[in-house]
Every structure is written in C-alpha cells, then in structure tokens.
Amino acid sequence: MSVTLRAAPTAVAPGLVLRCWRVEDVDALVEAHRDPELRARTRNPLATPAQARRWVAGNRQGWAAGRRFSFAVCEPLPDGERLVACVLLKDVVPGRADAEIGYWTAGPARGRGVAPRAVDAVSRWAFTRFAATGLSRLELLHQVDNPASCRVAEKSGFPFVEVLPARPPFPRDGHRHVRHRG
C-alpha cells in the first residue's frame, strides 16, 4: 500500500500528491467533513475522530482486498502537506471491464482545478494498473443538482452519457459520465 501518484501544478494551484490514507489524516478528515456542502453530498459524513479512524482503516482494508482504492489528495507545503480532496476507485473486479470513480473536494480547495487533476491521475493509474485484468471503462456518477461535478467529469475526460433515475440511497436523478481506456 505504498502507491503515490502526482498531478502537475497549474497556473493557479500547486502540484498534488495522491497517496494512501494514514491515521495521521484523521484530524484533517474531520475538519474537511465540517463543510456543509461536503456533508450534504456525502452519505456518511465523518463527525468524530473515531469515525475518521474507522474510515481510514476501512480504506486500508479496501486496498488490501484489491477492490477499492481510496487516495488522500494533498498539496505539498514547506512543512508538510494539506489535505484537499479524496479520489476513490471502487468496484474493481478482475475480468470486469468497468469500475467506478468518485471524489470529494475540501471546501477551501474548490475552484482551483484540484478535483479534475486528481480524478485524471487516478483514472490514468487505474487503466494502467488494471489493464491486464480487463479494466477498460470508468464511470463517474453524480446527482443532477451538482453542476460542479459535471464540470469535473468533463475536465477529467468523462463525457456525459445519460441521466439515471433516482434510486435509494440517492433521492434525485443522476448523471452517468464515462471514460474509456485509451
């Protein structure tokens, strides 16, 4: 579990480091989940350090099982790094052509191109890492009332494909965006 990815800087934002989650991320996770927008879009917001520790442990188990790969997205600082987002590759099954990618961005990092760069980096990694097992298609899903996610999807190379009808646990219709390997 020592995968580290990088996303290049832009004119308005520093480069990004994408890595596995660590116990040291617990306080930053709780802080990110205090954001009302993130809480509204996340099925299981993390309100306490105990919840965040369980979440980190669960993500490490996903890596160990080889089916769910969650990356902490960080901006490097002179004295460490700042958590700015999360990107998740899930439902990776050998022999299955498709998997799903999801993400969230911490409030202070929104609007600086963090999510598109991080989603693109994980997508490229996934297509390379799982090409031999047949992965050739990634889906990015979001609710229709989230135009920012439409922009992230398009900027990350996931064109819009279709509207999906609402179904539990999602109360609103959704959008499906798809990116193909190569």
Rank of each mutant, 00 (worst) to 15 (best):
V3G: 00
T4Y: 01
T4W: 01
P9D: 09
T10C: 07
V12A: 13
G15T: 04
V17Y: 04
L18P: 01
R22Q: 15
V23R: 14
E24Y: 10
D25A: 14
D27N: 07
E31P: 01
A32S: 14
D35W: 10
D35Y: 10
P36F: 11
P36E: 08
P36C: 13
P36V: 15
L38K: 12
A40E: 05
A40F: 06
N44E: 13
P45T: 03
L46G: 11
A47Y: 03
T48M: 14
P49W: 09
A50C: 02
R54G: 09
W55I: 00
R60Q: 14
Q61T: 14
G62A: 13
A65E: 12
G66D: 08
F69D: 05
S70P: 03
S70G: 08
V73S: 11
C74E: 11
E75R: 13
E75I: 07
P78S: 05
D79I: 10
G80F: 10
E81Q: 14
R82W: 06
R82G: 08
C86V: 11
L89Y: 14
D91P: 02
V93D: 00
V93W: 01
P94D: 11
P94F: 10
P94C: 06
A97N: 01
A97S: 03
A99S: 12
A99W: 06
I101F: 06
W104D: 08
W104V: 12
A106T: 10
P108K: 04
A109K: 05
G113S: 09
G113V: 07
V114F: 04
V114A: 01
A115N: 07
A115H: 08
A118G: 04
D120G: 05
A121P: 05
V122G: 03
R124Q: 05
W125Q: 07
F127M: 13
T128P: 00
A131P: 07
L135Q: 10
L135F: 03
S136E: 09
E139L: 11
E139P: 00
L141M: 09
L141W: 08
V144A: 06
D145L: 00
D145R: 05
N146E: 15
C150N: 11
R151M: 07
V152G: 04
E154D: 10
E154V: 15
G157D: 04
P159Y: 13
V163Q: 11
V163R: 15
L164Y: 05
P165I: 00
P168R: 12
P169E: 06
P171K: 15
R172K: 15
R172Q: 11
D173R: 06
H177L: 09
R179M: 02
R181M: 03
R181Q: 05
R181C: 14
G182H: 12
